[in-house]
């Protein structure tokens, strides 16, 4: 029998035991900088460095706990995928209103534009749009229950993804932040009430492992 699978309860007990050590072990001067642990969990460091950090956590319960906290904060469910109305920040809403105004001025130019303020965290690659390809044919009709948007970007390995999905009148239906997988399932509820044939606009933006961002063109899918 496969010992990895033979007893989930046993593995859970081992994990509990490993985690329990942190309760009685204070952080020491040898503990790693939290930023290092965060980046290691994210896979944002050279593998040799990540190995050193993991080796340290094997012997340091306090840093092992820090690792678990970073895991918990980087999990996809923490980087929520929810209908946009439930989760958009004020800033993003303002950005979308700006977009709506710009779209009107542009006389219904198709596409969701993301207006981003320039800053040290926002470094865009020239010509990056060509690096991101939709795996959904342009205008392809998708069932509401399986409205799965997928894309690929072979040149952007290790990137995480922000996605925004909207109607042509720029009503945001769903979004995802910091996704590790290049796909987003739009909840059926977000599409409820839209007539068959409604065109859905979507756009993704990569945050690169080495820093910087790359945006995609606006893609179009249709509600079945």
């Amino acid at each position: 029998m496969n010992p990895m699978k033979r007893d989930d309860g046993e593995l859970a007990k081992l994990r509990r035991g490993f985690a329990a050590l942190s309760e009685e072990t204070p952080a020491s001067a040898a503990c790693l900088a939290p930023e290092k642990i965060w980046e290691a969990v994210r896979g944002g460091l050279p593998s040799a460095e990540i190995r050193e950090i993991v080796a340290h956590t094997a012997a340091c319960p306090a840093c092992a706990e820090d690792w678990r906290l970073a895991m918990a904060m980087q999990r996809p469910e923490t980087a929520k995928i929810l209908p946009a109305a439930d989760r958009f920040s004020v800033g993003r809403r303002l950005r979308n209103w700006s977009l709506a105004a710009a779209a009107v001025l542009a006389l219904a130019v198709v596409g969701v534009q993301w207006l981003r303020l320039s800053g040290p965290e926002a470094i865009y690659r020239e010509g990056g749009q060509a690096a991101v390809h939709s795996l959904i044919a342009d205008g392809q009709s998708l069932p509401r229950e399986q409205f799965l948007l997928r894309w690929e970007a072979p040149a952007l390995a290790g990137a995480t993804w922000d996605v925004e999905v909207s109607t042509e009148d720029l009503r945001v239906l769903a979004s995802g932040d910091d996704l590790r997988e290049p796909q987003l399932q739009v909840p059926a509820g977000a599409l409820a009430g839209l007539p068959a044939g409604t065109r859905i606009l979507w756009k993704v933006e990569a945050t690169l492992a080495e820093g910087g961002r790359v945006g995609s063109p606006t893609f179009v899918a249709t509600v079945q």
Binding site: K13, G17, F18, L21, E23
Partner: peptide, 12 residues
């Protein structure tokens, strides 16, 4: 809790 810690120390 005590058992978990004992297991934890052994694991380490």
């Amino acid at each position: 809790v005590a058992t978990s810690r004992q297991v934890g120390r052994a694991i380490q």
